[in-house]
């Protein structure tokens, strides 16, 4: 469904023509493979979910949504974990790479998280008779996780010094990840207040679910995360490059102020410049 359309594989690009803009995207051989693999796996999972698997004994046809929902719900933690690793790398080694990975992980994670909530709600309506059930641990934990990283992305979008923002974001990401187990335990205990029966997920009837379709689902979501993360990371890297080009210009411009005489810079305050 999202096959990269760039026709020229970068491996074939001779270095002599590297300056020619043959590739003007974040695609590469790697992402092409990932993208094609992802598209194929989507088709396979849809076939497996709707035709190759049998309805579940307890859930009936509704189990077919599980082959999308369950991998999303479990693998959504992977981008967030990458975000945490990137944040630690940044704080520890001042790794720019880690910072960009953290940003990419948070954004992909929020998309995954939101989709988990939506597919979960759509599944909950016919099962529980309601879109939302506060007594389900995973629902509530996932919701808070989503909100925590929505805040993270909001902080990321506040304009300002990139290093400062990276530090703040890294701290926020670590706080969020520390908070997740606490939230999970709290919600699990909290839920026992009501006598509401637990969701089917909590009882873990994995054996009822078609193992092959589930495996395909995990492969599909995993490839999707790899594809999206790669592209998102490269976008973050490009943004940093654009920023840096602007900075080189700004320094050159600033030095030119001195060379062309003092009068040129009169009235220009750092504050004005900082907002550009």
């Amino acid at each position: 469904m999202t096959v990269p359309t760039n026709p020229s594989p970068d491996l074939a690009t001779p270095s002599a023509t590297a300056s020619a803009p043959l590739l003007t995207s974040t695609s590469s051989r790697l992402t092409q493979v990932l993208g094609i693999g992802w598209a194929i796996s989507v088709v396979l999972v849809v076939c497996a979910a709707f035709w190759w698997s049998e309805p579940d004994a307890t859930q009936g046809e509704l189990v077919r949504l599980f082959y999308l929902h369950v991998p999303l719900a479990i693998l959504e933690y992977v981008p967030f974990l990458l975000c945490g690793i990137g944040s630690v790398l940044f704080l520890w080694k001042r790794s720019e790479w880690g910072d960009l990975m953290a940003h990419a992980g948070a954004e992909v994670g929020v998309v995954m998280c939101a989709l988990t909530l939506v597919t979960g709600a759509v599944w909950g309506r016919p099962t529980w008779g309601t879109y939302w059930d506060w007594s389900d641990v995973r629902l509530v934990t996932t919701l808070i996780l989503c909100l925590l990283f929505v805040g993270y992305l909001a902080l990321r979008r506040v304009p300002g010094d990139p290093t400062t923002r990276a530090k703040q974001a890294a701290i926020v990401a670590l706080v969020a990840l520390i908070d997740i187990p606490l939230i999970n335990r709290s919600v699990e205990w909290w839920e026992n207040r009501t006598l509401h029966q637990k969701g089917t997920i909590a009882q873990g009837k994995i054996e009822d679910i078609n193992a092959f379709a589930t495996l395909l689902g995990f492969i599909m979501v995993g490839l999707g995360i790899a594809f999206l993360m790669t592209h998102r990371f490269r976008i973050a890297w490009l943004e940093r490059q654009v920023d840096r080009v602007g900075l080189d210009d700004a320094i050159a411009h600033r030095r030119a102020e001195a060379a062309t005489g003092v009068d040129a810079s009169v009235g220009r305050t750092p504050e004005e410049g900082g907002q550009q």
Binding site: G160, G246, I251, E271, G273, G274
Partner: peptide
């Protein structure tokens, strides 16, 4: 020495 205020190079090589 280069020092930035946001993205503005307030010091551009002192």
């Amino acid at each position: 020495v280069i020092a930035l205020l946001g993205r503005f190079p307030a010091l551009a090589g002192v």
